[in-house]
Write a protein that binds this DNA or RNA. Structure first.
Length: 560
RNA sequence: GCCUCCGUAGCUUAAUGGAUAAAGCAGGACUCUUCUAAGGUCUUGAUGUAGGUUCGAUUCCUGCCGGAGGCACCA
């Protein structure tokens, strides 16, 4: 696989040219005055957002004007003079615009070559090697056995998988991991209800009774101990069967939603590792306080606070287990980067955890990145399986499918998944998403279904054509979509570097709109001389859309 | 009270310290005897507030106003 592509080569050529030109200017310049701060700004070569501003642009003149003690426009003219003399053939013209940007307009032939390249690389177009050699573990979703998978799990699952895919596309070796709470009070509540013969969502019943009935509460607490100690054969049997059924149910849901985990971690394992490491450091890092073992994080950073790692009953809390988890992950897979995707309600707690980890596992801490996401909310408030106010993933999917059918279209799991995931991945990670049901089932405009439809229609178009496109064929007029297609690899890189899958979503939507405009105005299939090249554009569009959607974990359909 | 995050069109969102702040929905006007109209074209409309840094601020810093989350044995 060849990873370089025309766009990257072009960018490198332009950057070299700009730096040469800057070198010439600085030669004729006097030395900076002693003691004056240089105020260096980064010189970037990038794609202007607005296509009318060219194909590449640089802020070189703006960034160096101060250093040269000249007006930005003056520097821009000097740079342009040099660039005009030395520019490669692929650059059609160079313009100065706005406060001093230098814009590069490429020859039409460049875009033609790019279309050919996309078709040639096909499923590899967009891959980079910027994370080559990295071994990344991405933990996400973390559902608790014995509880239902609800729409609150959609956020971490969708984001986690797209982050993992971004690392894969940028050359890293990636494992997706899931951390499941298979012990604890929530489990006891469910098992207690199962003992009472409740089969439908036993956790909800157990949780409700726990809060309302003091006798039941006592039974559940005792049951919790027995489950943890595994002393009662009857209870073990019930627990093991329930755990197995629960994990199998998760797998079927993961499959529908397009997630596949490589590594599984359980609280029953990490608790022991975490407890040991905390006890080993009592008196130095951790302190005894009111019978518990705590970490006074505020001593190292005043914006942090104290948290309990081992409670007064001697049991490790989530904090201690998380330390154990970091170690357990590394033992299973010697990662160079560990990404943990969670809800942002534990943002503060995670900062404390990382502060503690800095003492215990400094190397692991430096490789750990916490990626908090917002909540998927209903208008009525936070969705929680603790309150029983949940919409399960099955329910929401079936509702979406029903709405699609009401519009007279055929509903599939793919459409439902696309609708849900697009809603999550169109915004930057971190903010809450108010789950607007009407909007999620909307098949118009800015939506996953819009992209799926564009894909299916293009696929059908190509089938109907019955012949291959030809990127070398004649082309008289340029179309905007050609100017967007070759940018895809840059978008993938940037999205990967910045943990920002929404860059892909935004780009794909813009690309599809641009292609739809092309489709609406030009006859693609036909006997005319333009047809072969237009088919090539359609092929390239289909490839980029498919590659982009696969990064997002959004399924495609060949027809709709 | 303290800590963290967030305030952009009527609504949901985008924007790498840069150019005329970009889309979708909703509202208004068009568009299928032509490859899938779940489409396309045109149009109305916005940076909470007061300062600061900067040639340039939606973006960085400070105050205020408003919202969300967290602050000791749940996860």
């Amino acid at each position: 696989m060849r990873l370089g592509y025309y766009g990257a080569t072009m960018k490198a050529v332009i950057e070299k040219l700009v730096r040469e030109a800057l070198g010439i200017i600085s030669k004729g310049m006097q030395k900076p005055v002693e003691g004056e701060r240089p105020h260096r700004e980064e010189i970037v070569i990038e794609h202007p957002t607005d296509l009318s501003n060219g194909d590449y642009t640089t802020n070189a003149a703006l960034a160096t004007a101060r250093q040269f003690r000249m007006a930005p426009l003056e520097v821009a003219h000097l740079l342009k003079d040099y660039i005009d003399l030395h520019k490669p053939d692929a650059v059609e013209r160079v313009e100065i615009a706005g406060p001093g940007f230098i814009n590069f307009y490429l020859q039409k032939d460049f875009f033609k070559k790019s279309i050919g390249e996309i078709i040639e690389k096909d499923g590899d177009f967009g891959k980079s090697a910027i994370f080559a050699g990295e071994k990344v573990i991405v933990e996400h979703t973390d559902p608790n056995p014995f509880k239902k998978l609800h729409i609150g799990h959609l956020m971490p699952m969708t984001i986690g998988t797209s982050i993992a895919n971004l690392f894969r596309w940028n050359g890293a070796e990636v494992k997706e991991a899931v951390y499941q709470g298979d012990v604890g009070l929530h489990v006891a509540k469910a098992v207690w209800a199962m003992q009472k013969g409740i089969t439908e969502d036993p956790y909800v019943y157990g949780n409700k009774t726990y809060d309302e009935d003091a006798g039941a509460k006592q039974e559940i607490i005792e049951l919790n101990k027995k489950i943890y100690e595994r002393t009662d054969a009857e209870i073990n049997k019930l627990y093991d069967a329930g755990r197995k059924a629960s994990l199998e149910y998760f797998e079927t849901m993961y499959k529908i939603l397009g997630t596949k985990f490589d590594l599984y971690f359980f609280e029953s394992d990490t608790a022991k590792i975490g407890e040991r490491v905390v006890r080993d450091h009592v008196g130095e890092i951790f302190q005894k306080s009111d019978g518990a073992i705590v970490f006074h994080a505020e001593e190292y950073d005043p914006s942090l606070h104290t948290r309990v790692f081992i409670n007064s009953e001697g049991l490790p809390t989530y904090e201690a287990k998380e330390l154990g988890l970091a170690k357990a992950k590394f033992q299973k897979y010697a990662y160079t980067k560990s990404v943990v995707v969670t809800g942002n309600e534990i943002r503060e707690y995670f900062r404390v955890l990382l502060a503690a980890m800095k003492f215990i596992y400094p190397d692991l801490r430096d490789m750990t990145k916490h990626l908090p996401h917002g909540m998927l909310r209903l208008p009525s408030g936070k969705m929680s399986s603790r309150t029983g106010d949940v919409i399960s993933i099955e329910e929401i999917m079936s509702d979406i499918k029903k709405a699609v059918e009401e519009k007279g279209n055929t509903a599939t799991d793919e459409i439902a998944v696309a609708a849900l995931k697009y809603m999550i991945l169109k915004s930057s990670i971190g903010g809450d998403i108010v789950f607007d049901f009407e909007k999620s089932v909307s098949t118009e405009g800015d939506s996953g279904v819009y992209l799926q439809y564009a894909y299916a229609r293009t696929n059908s178009l190509l089938e109907k054509a019955g012949k291959k496109g030809d990127a070398h064929a004649e082309r008289s007029e340029m179309h905007e979509v050609e100017k967007l297609l070759y940018r895809f690899p840059d978008i993938v890189e940037r999205a990967g570097r910045e943990y920002a899958p929404h860059y892909i979503t935004t780009y794909l939507t813009e690309l599809a709109a641009s292609f739809n405009n092309f489709y609406a105005h030009e006859q693609v299939i036909g006997d005319g001389p333009e047809s072969a090249y237009r088919l090539a554009i359609a092929e390239a569009f289909k490839i980029v859309l498919k590659n982009g959607l696969s990064i997002l974990g959004i399924p495609t359909q060949e027809r709709m």
